[in-house]
Design a protein around this nucleic acid. Sequence first.
DNA 1: GCAAAAGTGTTGAGAATACACCCATGT
DNA 2: ACATGGGTGTATTCTCAACACTTTTGC
Lengths: 247, 247
Amino acid sequence: MSRYDPSAFPPFAVTVDLVLLTVREHELCALLVRRGEPPFQGYWALPGGFVRPGEGLGEAASRELAEETGLRAHASPGQVMAGAHLEQLATYGHPQRDPRMRVVSVAHLALAPDLPTPKPGGDARGARWAPVSELLGPGRTDREPLAFDHELILADGVERARSKIEYSALATAFCPEEFTVGELRRVYEAVWGVVLDPRNFHRKVTGTPGFLVPSGGTTTRQGGRPAQLFKAGGATVLNPPMLRPES
Amino acid sequence: MSRYDPSAFPPFAVTVDLVLLTVREHELCALLVRRGEPPFQGYWALPGGFVRPGEGLGEAASRELAEETGLRAHASPGQVMAGAHLEQLATYGHPQRDPRMRVVSVAHLALAPDLPTPKPGGDARGARWAPVSELLGPGRTDREPLAFDHELILADGVERARSKIEYSALATAFCPEEFTVGELRRVYEAVWGVVLDPRNFHRKVTGTPGFLVPSGGTTTRQGGRPAQLFKAGGATVLNPPMLRPES
DNA sequence: GCAAAAGTGTTGAGAATACACCCATGT
DNA sequence: ACATGGGTGTATTCTCAACACTTTTGC
């Protein structure tokens, strides 16, 4: 049982898959692409692909994200760049998860603002934003399954996003560069599937140092009284955290 | 740029590495093994090895853990079995992290009680429990480095353990099957490197439903007044969480 | 004027801290 | 008797949730 025997290691294929989430029309949505080849031809799947020989895992995820959306982001320290957040999620390596060969997939989680292109077309095949409630909800047993174990990966990604906006400033990754407190609140409401008190929410986020910085302008794009515009502050961890109701 | 092309995928070696932590004499310690072959021959490293062809990632980690300690644990849902906790940590795949070939390592985090064997000998080479303060502390620039990127992996594992005992019942994985509130408190103190108020700690953990269940007995092994013995309760998530001071 | 969304003030409930104090053992 | 750790009570401080109320726009 010698370890690290270079002449005898079993070869694996390594891919990255992307759980790319956004908030559209008050709903948390994930990007899916239609598979053009077997296996699972015609099924919807998470975007992904092989890691190239000289490429790091975060680099590969970043490249896939750029191919699908045009956004630039780096995965290394879980950082936000050019409006998108990218971080490693988990790795899936069940021996039979791909019927052709042994494939280990390093899934990444990406959070992006509502993109202007409704159907991003990095590849020629179809792509769509699907509400996660239609993909994972406990109802709807008639839904068409995703390829491979992508339903599991998606569920893990959604769970991670839901818990991470509690104690980090990541919810701003779902917003455009400038946004109002109300828009940020609607992000929380969509991701958690709850309604929050607008007054307490306002006090909380504006009172957390480093979370939001005023950008000077105002907007009335949501109707009503003009709202102050903010940008994401430097803070990455929220203390005290946002509290999810009904826990 | 066709994806999932079986005839052209670049082959990777896939390993699992273990960040195995325990608390010994009021200190958080990690298990290290001495490398017997190049590269990094003679360096201390995290225990680990190749994933076998028919084996899942959690299975491989579980097997490595058993080889090193004799403990049984399953990694799938991050579960505790036979006194140890095992969960996937993160995956490390920098192209040059192994000088021989392209290796992707799926690191796992394991938490175990103080084991009776001071120097577990799963392999013939040496093994030791090293206090993490000696391996990662900001001082001690003279310390010998670990093999590969294992210092980074260890740091990530320690950080995960520190934050996870805040909002989960995982600290009990560091304790024997039956333990006192004081022993559990000393686990928190060792992992966080702080001192906690024994009175408030006692009220907090005994007041959190499902965290601890009395096992009926008492002990005086810590001296002083006999302390009630507890076992880990079924709860996995702590609500409200334990609060780390000075944040 | 009226609806709609933004923002402020106030109040009461519950949790965390700090610490005084008592309890039950070993030596 | 005394040291040692286990465990309870209590006052102060802080945060959170609930909600009344005011502000500023579009129609």
